[in-house]
Amino acid sequence: MIQRIQTVYLIVVALLSGVLPFFVNLWSDAKGQEIYASNEILVSILFYIIGALALWTIFLFKKRKNQFVLNRLNMILNLFLLGLFVYRSLNLSGETTVSEKGIGMLIPVFSIVFLTLANRAIKKDEDLVKSVDRLR
Rank of each mutant, 00 (worst) to 15 (best):
V24M: 06
N66I: 09
V69H: 12
N78G: 14
D125T: 09
N74W: 00
N91E: 08
I103Q: 06
S111H: 07
I50P: 11
R88W: 02
Y87K: 12
S17A: 14
G104Q: 14
Y9P: 02
Q6H: 10
D133G: 03
A54K: 04
L79C: 06
V8E: 00
A52H: 01
S28C: 12
A30P: 01
E34W: 13
F80C: 06
K65C: 00
L55Y: 07
R136C: 08
Y36V: 12
L82Q: 08
L128E: 13
F23A: 13
E40I: 15
N119D: 04
Q6W: 03
I103V: 12
Y9D: 10
L42I: 09
I58A: 02
V113F: 04
N91P: 00
S93H: 03
F59R: 06
L79P: 02
Q6E: 15
V98P: 02
T116F: 04
L20C: 07
T7V: 08
L26I: 15
Y87I: 09
V113G: 05
I11Y: 02
V43W: 00
G102M: 05
K31Y: 11
D29M: 01
K65E: 15
A118E: 01
L115H: 00
R4W: 00
G18Q: 06
N91Q: 14
F68A: 06
D127H: 06
